Computed example of a mutant assay.
Amino acid sequence: MRYYEDIEVGETREFGEYHVTKEEILEFAEQYDPQPFHTDETAAEESAFGELVASGWHTAAICMRMLVDGPMQDRASMGARGVDELRWKQPVRPGDTLSIRTEVIDKRVSESDPERGYVDSRLEGITQDGDVVISWIGLGMIARRNPGDD
């Protein structure tokens, strides 16, 4: 298990592989983001995208799943304080395969609870072609191995 003390600013990791299907794009959009360019191929052709594209929220959910299945598995995670700077940079299309890259950009001990540290990490979702399609800064909370050892 990796605790706050084990994580270094500048640490970068790449992982995951998720193949996005047309069926999944349609199913997610019908339930959570029913805009025509996510739910109707004909309407999507007339949109700014020119074809069916995944909801940005769908893309975020896919990346979150890869994050949980990846580096969060071995972290003493205590949840998160939120997300900053969420950006949908390019659309995700049926047939894209996504992976993620994370970089620790800041860490500090919580002033209100010495049992936890704050670890801020930039996440980027990347296509098989190397295009960044989404990014955000996750404001993680990680348990400390030895609270009070400062």
Rank of each mutant, 00 (worst) to 15 (best):
P36D: 13
I134C: 11
F15Q: 02
S55P: 05
V20K: 00
A54D: 05
R116K: 15
C63S: 08
Y118D: 15
M141F: 09
D33P: 05
D129V: 03
S112I: 11
E45T: 03
A48K: 13
G50K: 03
E24L: 07
N146W: 09
P94L: 05
S77E: 04
T12R: 06
F37S: 10
S77L: 05
R116G: 13
F37P: 07
S47M: 02
Y18A: 02
R108V: 06
D129K: 09
I25S: 00
L86R: 12
R145E: 12
I137C: 00
R65K: 09
S112G: 06
M72K: 01
P34I: 09
R122E: 15
G16R: 01
D84G: 06
A29Y: 08
G10L: 01
V68H: 08
D40W: 11
M64S: 12
D106V: 04
E11N: 07
E23P: 03
K22G: 06
D40E: 11
K107M: 11
P34V: 09
R122D: 14
A29Q: 03
R93T: 13
T102C: 11
I100L: 14
T12V: 12
V9F: 07
Y118I: 15
A54G: 08
S47W: 03
Y18Q: 05
I137N: 08
F15G: 03
A43W: 00
V53M: 05
R116S: 14
E24F: 12
W57D: 08
G125K: 12
M64L: 13
E51L: 07
Y118A: 15
I126G: 07
E85S: 11
S47N: 04
L98F: 01
G138V: 04
L52S: 00
D6C: 03
